[in-house]
Simulated scan of single mutants.
Amino acid sequence: METWQNLLGFSGYVLGLTRDELASVQWADSIPTLMGALVGGLLTLHAANKTFKGQQTMQRQQLLDMEKAFLQSINSELAMVRQHYQTVIGNEIDQLPDGKPFESNYSVTGDYFTVYNKSDQIGHVRDEKLRRDIIWAYSMMKGLLDSYQTNNDMLAKREQDMKDFRYSSKMVGLLDANTRSAELTQYAETLKTYHLEARAAVDSALESIDETLKHEKNWKV
């Protein structure tokens, strides 16, 4: 009896009829029609479910494709920034003797992190360690460039002190310039530390990105 009631309920769902309406049906004459409607209804439900699952799969794949494209872009940007930095500044700081100031003045005011700064995809990187590595690498590089700007400002102040001494012949200008030189020498050690730490952070992030990208299973639903 319970099975029959369940069948009536499901039949009503498929045919859009209430239980009372179903009960008034002339079953002997209507069974072929009912069975056809049930089969048709089941096929429709199956097709709708398959379509829904297909759409879900497509959406998940699109998210994976977006994440992969973002990581590929970040990988390219970090690699280029590292290479440019090492060529323009890094080699010089590597060769700087201990106890010497960093005398070069490099412009570090440009936007070297276009992909990272203009994208909100970092929050969608699934791997927590990879996400941390990328954020840390960019934070360290930004901090390093800020440090070079600080060094530039110190060089400019020392130059101004020397100009004041040359034009006024006042010893205070020379003393100030010597003080700046001592500060620059001390700050050079800070620069070398930041240089090594930032480069290591970038190398670690690049290694993590490469390791993630090379596994195809990470990019298929």
Rank of each mutant, 00 (worst) to 15 (best):
G99S: 02
K100F: 05
K100D: 12
P101D: 09
F102E: 11
F102I: 02
E103F: 05
E103T: 09
E103R: 11
S104G: 00
S104P: 02
S104Q: 03
N105T: 01
N105G: 09
N105M: 12
Y106E: 02
S107I: 01
S107P: 05
S107F: 10
V108H: 15
T109Q: 13
T109A: 13
G110S: 09
G110V: 00
D111P: 02
D111I: 11
Y112K: 07
Y112G: 10
Y112L: 03
F113S: 03
T114P: 01
Y116F: 14
Y116K: 00
Y116M: 05
N117L: 05
N117Q: 07
N117A: 07
K118L: 07
K118R: 14
S119T: 05
S119N: 12
S119Q: 07
D120G: 10
D120C: 02
Q121Y: 15
Q121W: 15
Q121S: 15
I122Q: 05
I122M: 14
H124Q: 15
H124L: 14
H124D: 14
V125A: 09
V125S: 09
V125Q: 10
V125M: 12
V125G: 00
V125L: 03
R126E: 06
R126G: 09
D127M: 09
E128I: 04
E128C: 00
K129N: 08
K129S: 15
L130K: 00
L130Q: 04
R131M: 06
R131K: 13
R132M: 10
R132T: 13
R132I: 05
R132Q: 13
R132S: 09
D133L: 06
I134R: 05
I134H: 01
I134A: 02
I134E: 03
I135T: 13
I135V: 15
I135G: 03
W136C: 01
Y138E: 03
Y138P: 10
S139L: 06
S139P: 09
M141T: 15
M141I: 10
M141W: 06
K142N: 14
K142Q: 14
K142W: 12
G143H: 07
G143F: 11
G143N: 15
L144P: 03
L145V: 01
L145S: 03
L145D: 03
L145T: 06
